[in-house]
Amino acid sequence: MRQPPFLAIILTPLLILGLATLLTWVERRLLGLWQDRYGPNRVGPGGMLQAVADGIKMLFKQDWIPPFADKGVFVLAPAIGMMTVLLSFAVIPATSLRSIAGNLNVGLLFILAMMGLGVYAVVLAGWASNSKYALLGGMRAAAQMISYEVFMGLSLMGVVMITGSFSLYDIVAAQSGLWFIVPQCLGFIVFLLAGIAETHRLPFDLPEGENELGAGFHTEYSGMKFGMFFLAEYAGIVLVSALVTTLYLGGWLGPFLPAAVWFVLKTGTLVAFFILLRAALPRPRYDQLMTLGWKVLLPLSLLNIAATGTILMLRAPE
């Protein structure tokens, strides 16, 4: 058995956290860009240290637990959220070199499992807060995330069927000819939408829905506990972007440039796309969200599986 790569185990989460922190600034600058303004540009070069300032502020805020909250669960919830996202990164292959967990043969399943666990963070936070807005937010989150997990899993089936493996390395390697976005365009669309819903990003951020729910499931959170939800959300964006890159955009594959750069470029573009969605689209009603999921995405993903299966069967060597 090989030694676990300790350096990578320590560095990767730090990198991800740093990235997530930086992303808060990137998002605000990009939103500013698309809304004809500047965004934070005062702290540090180009306002880059704004995220650091915010982080310091959040760290120094009073770590307050409402007296009516269920204390243990209240503290546990943000930790779960953070943990599941960070663990998912263990199997993401940034380059052809191995990721932390190595070439895990059930990498994709592992990620799905982690995303499934992530629901608990939100639901427990809503429940433990013992406040009506938080509870409503938590319930919405539960319904939304469980629903979209179904389409997410189904949409991936096409990729798995083509590759014949759950290993992300194998999936990337299988795209050396053609990125899966072409044969699996339906799956790509479904997965992308499901990914937004899973990370409850705008426009699908109904669990937070601040105009009707205050701040949804994290209404009662403040200080660094809120900060953990916050960072987990941005880490989640990175995760979904990296996953889409890996599954549909050929991962680290690309001409001329080193593999890692290709990976970062693709992921970064997707992250920017996530932010563009936020800048451009209004939030649907909750029932519209569910309708989209069950009446559009579910048939689409089933169609995708059927079509992929049919084509594979027809092309299969007898």
């Binding site: 500013g32 860009l33 698309w34 809304q35 004809d36 303004r37 500047y38 563009l276 969605l277 800048a279 451009a280 689209l281």
Partner: peptide
């Protein structure tokens, strides 16, 4: 419509910014 919205919003990246740098 959604795609058009996204595109139009994206084009705003090349517009003049209204913020006054007080």
């Amino acid at each position: 419509d959604t795609m058009r919205t996204l595109f139009l919003t994206f084009l705003h990246a090349f517009r003049h910014r209204v913020t006054i740098q007080y």
